[in-house]
């Protein structure tokens, strides 16, 4: 099925929120989306409804930065290091456990619904059996310290469309591809431009790989973040995306950004692989569409918030963006 043309993108809803929403998950075919927020709570609601009326489900003990759905099971993770399993049908919490020693940055579900993956600043990616909640693999291939002896962070994780591959990306730009079944490392690529270490002016760092996404065939891996930053007090680096042939360890396309500054926090491919969309921001946000094969930027759309995450429908005809004090809905096609 041919993906809709990015030129048809239009904003159809803009919802103001009193909180920052860091994560969104939405089951295909369902109007209900689940949101992880800065008030430590997880909400459910339909952002396309005439009136958005989010319902509070439960709370973590810090920012909720990951939500993922496998069937009717919702798993959320937060900066409290905990994963909470919630039965959306019964409306009940199944279990909560201390999953990571440090902040959980992202939680995702495999497309086949069999696994959840969580990444955290303890630099581990953990794979969980979606049915039982048991730990299946603990993937460790990211250094705990940066080369400058400060703590590193593990921000990004993605499954391939066939659920067989996992990619993880960290603060210094190291990206690892794993075999989901065995937990073995299959390859690695580097995106060092996305990490800025300021040794002279400010003696700390900013940036990191904030998003990864496999192409539908699993051969290409897109990596998102921000280019080199002059003044690391601000997110002033250009929004940056690189695409790799991960098996060969080679970069195949580079989108260094020109219009927008800030972090690319989320990436997704069109189901036919014809384009790649990235979202993120700094003071304000963006949706960026690329053609990796032609190495062309197709569309750059301003969004009235720093976008932290989005949920895209299977046909790529609807994108629900969440971020700083807003939720937006865009349509394509």
């Amino acid at each position: 099925m041919k993906a809709p043309n990015p030129d048809t993108l239009k904003a159809v809803k803009d919802i103001q929120r009193p909180v920052i929403t860091f994560a969104v998950a939405r089951a295909e075919g369902s109007p209900t989306a689940y949101f992880g927020c800065s008030d430590f709570k997880v909400y459910a609601g339909d952002p396309t409804a005439a009136k958005f009326e989010p319902k509070e489900l439960y709370a973590h003990e810090s920012y909720v930065t990951g939500v993922a759905l496998a069937g009717t099971t919702l798993v959320s993770g937060g900066y409290d290091g905990k994963l909470t399993w919630f039965d959306t049908k019964a409306g009940k919490t199944i279990r909560t456990h201390d999953a990571h020693a440090k902040w959980i940055r992202k939680v995702i579900a495999s497309p086949d619904g069999k696994l959840f993956a969580s990444v955290a600043d303890d630099m581990a990616c953990k794979l969980w059996d979606a049915a039982t909640g048991k730990l299946v693999h603990e993937l460790r291939g990211h250094a705990e310290k940066t080369p400058n002896d400060f703590v590193s962070m593990l921000y990004a994780v993605a499954f391939s469309a066939d659920s067989k591959l996992i990619a993880t990306g960290d603060k210094v730009g190291h990206v690892v591809v794993w075999d989901a079944a065995t937990g073995k490392q299959l390859g690695a690529v580097e995106a060092p431009v996305m990490y800025t270490w300021d040794k002279v002016q400010r003696l700390h760092s900013i940036g990191g790989v904030r998003s990864v996404a496999f192409s539908p065939d699993g051969k290409a891996l897109a990596v998102g973040g921000m280019g080199k930053v002059g003044n690391i007090d601000h997110l002033e680096g250009k929004a940056r995306v690189e695409v790799f042939d991960w098996k060969a360890g080679k970069q195949t396309a580079e989108f260094p950004g020109d219009k927008f500054s800030g972090l690319v926090n989320r990436l997704a491919w069109a189901p036919d692989g014809s384009w790649l969309v990235g979202a993120g921001g700094a003071g304000e946000g963006f949706l960026l569409f690329f053609d990796p094969a032609a190495k062309k930027t197709l569309k750059q759309e301003k969004v009235m918030m720093h976008v932290h995450d989005f949920a895209m429908s299977a046909k790529a005809d609807e994108i629900v963006c969440v971020g700083h004090n807003r939720i937006t809905v865009h349509k394509l096609g």
Binding site: W103, D121, F150, V151, M153, Q201, R202, L203, H204, S205, I206, I232, D233, H234, L235, E236, A282
Partner: peptide
């Protein structure tokens, strides 16, 4: 010890 001026990514800066 400079520089703590975290207009962007305050929590990351302080975590570091």
């Amino acid at each position: 010890r400079a520089w703590w001026d975290s207009h962007g990514q305050n929590f990351e800066t302080h975590q570091e």
